[in-house]
Every structure is written in C-alpha cells, then in structure tokens.
Amino acid sequence: MGPPGAVPAEGGQDCADLSVLVRCAAGYCDGQASAMIRYVLGRFLSLVLSLVVASIVIFAVIEVIPGDPASFMLGVNARADTLAALRAEMGLDQPLPVRYFAWVTGLLTGDFGNSWTYKTPVAELVSDRIWVSLPLAIYALILSTLIAFPAGIYAASRRGSAGDVTIMGATQLGVAIPNFWFAMILVLIFAINLRWFSAGGFPGWDNPMQALKALTLPAIALALPQAAILARVMRSSLLDMLGEDFIRTVRAKGLSRRQALWRHAVRNALIPVLTIIGLQFSFLLAGGIIIEQVFFLPGLGRLIFQSISARDLIVVESVVMLLVFTVIVVNFLVDLAYAAVDPRLRRKA
C-alpha cells in the first residue's frame, strides 16, 4: 500500500509489478502445490484483511465515537493547557485518516504511543504484562487439551458405560461453572485452607518454577470449564466419526474397535476439534483478564481495568488491538493446522 496521496500512476505501477512477481512465482508450481499455496495465501489474505478491519473498528470506537477523545479522557474540569498537551500528544489536530495511519504505522513498528496516566510508552507497559497473560492462556490451553482429549476419547470409546456417564456429568458441571468463581473456590481450598499455593501475586520469571506455580491455580480455573466443553466436542465428534462408513471398512479389514478408533477416528475427529481449540484460545486470553483479577496477577487485565477507570484511551486502544491481533493470528494458525490434518484442503480434487 502506497502512502496516502501517492500519484495514482505510481501506485498502479506497484501493483502491476507485484502481480507479475507473484504470477512468476506461481508459474513454477504444479497444480497440486499451487492449490496448497492458494489456500495458505487465501487464509493469509483473510488474516491481513481481518486485522485491517479490526483496527478500523477499534480506532473508530475509541477515537471517533467519543467526539473529542482528549476532553473525554481528562473530564470536564480539565485545564486548557493540559488539554492542549494531550491533544498534541494524540495528534488530534490531524485529519482522521492520517491519525489512523500514524497509529497503525506505530503499531507495526512497535510504537504503541505513550500512556497518559503512566507517562510511559504503552509498549513498555504491555511487554511487562504480556509475559503473564500469554503464558497463562497457553498454560490453560495445554491443561484443557490434556484433560479433554483423554476424557473425550474415553467417553466416546465406552459410550453408555458408567465411565462415559460420569465424564459427561462432570462436563455438564464444568460447562456451568463460572471460571472466576471456580478460581475463588480454588483459592479458598488450596491457598487459604491447605496452603499449597499462594493466594495471589506473581513473583516474575526470574525463577521459572515459582512463576509456573503462581500461574497453576489460575490456569486450572481457566482450563477446567474449557476442558469440559472440549471433551464434549471431542466425544461427539468421535462418535460421528465412528458412525462413518469408512470405520466399517477398516473393521472389515480386521482392525479391532480400539484400533479403528485410534488409527482412523481420532485423526478425523480432530478437524472439528481444532476449530474449537482455536476459538478457545481467544476465550482463554479474554477469560485470563478476569482470572487475573481473582489472583492479583499483574497481567494485561489489570492494565486494562486501571486504564478504563483512568480513562486512558491510548492504553485501552492498543491493548485491545493486541488481544484481537493475537486471536486473529491464532485462528490463522488453526487454518494452517487444518491443511496439515486434512488432505482435501492440500490438493484439489
């Protein structure tokens, strides 16, 4: 994309060159590889497009809807010179498109602007805290998968048995438990009564074991309700697969029920499960913001809530964009994982 106001002829030239380049690159590919490249490129294009639209939406909500964001941030009693300083800081004298591009260019180069309340670069604030929030989400995702897969597979393979009924009953409860309340109960039991864990706070990553330990209760609180959902999806997806014609075919080849399940049904059942895992990541990331409140973790959640109450829109804007960015990128990765699992996406019919 050229800078705004570039001469049209020049922009057109750029586009032509680019398309020739891509066309040449594609010329070396045979049909099958090209289908794969087309798929990946298509998903990538959709990723970029989603990011662009998402950034426009966030920008519009934060900087356009309030009218004058600076006076919104400072409130009605703001002094004129403070207001002017903030307006200059935010570049409010510039037209909207210019401000938008400046913001996006800043994001791309790692410049998230300066927090008005903390008087420090947002990038610094974020980089301190993201190392709490992101590991928490990933920790919870791993836990959720580790619990859900065996539970779902076990329940599906012994459909109708006491084990299946127990697991399904447990997932029914797991789906209904609010994770922040579950977190409070965990604190009550494991931190206050048993004193196995501390009730909150985060010691930093200098001592990784201590850090992991501090994240364990929050991760469990986050993971269990999601694991319940995932186990249900895994079970029903597997049962669908076990009803497919090709399972009967492999049984006719002499595979036992167990072999048919593990060698054929599980991999096929992963396709719908992957979608849920992708969606869950965004819930874990967002849910983490709430769980951080329970455990007094210095993550993005705290930063966001402090910024909201301080009306520090600059921080809110960038942190929200970062969250949405992460979610969109994870969904892109899930799409790529599809291609690894499902050959129908890799090659054309």
């Binding site: 090709f246 009967r248 075919t249 492999v250 006719a252 699992v341 050959p343």
Partner: peptide
Amino acid sequence: GMVFQEPMTALNPVQ
C-alpha cells in the same frame, strides 16, 4: 473380506 455399497464414503478421507 468385504466390499461395501458406497465407494464415496467407504475410504478414510485423510489417508
């Protein structure tokens, strides 16, 4: 050995 009616769904699509 056994052969089934519907060849379109009788094979595992991901192998």
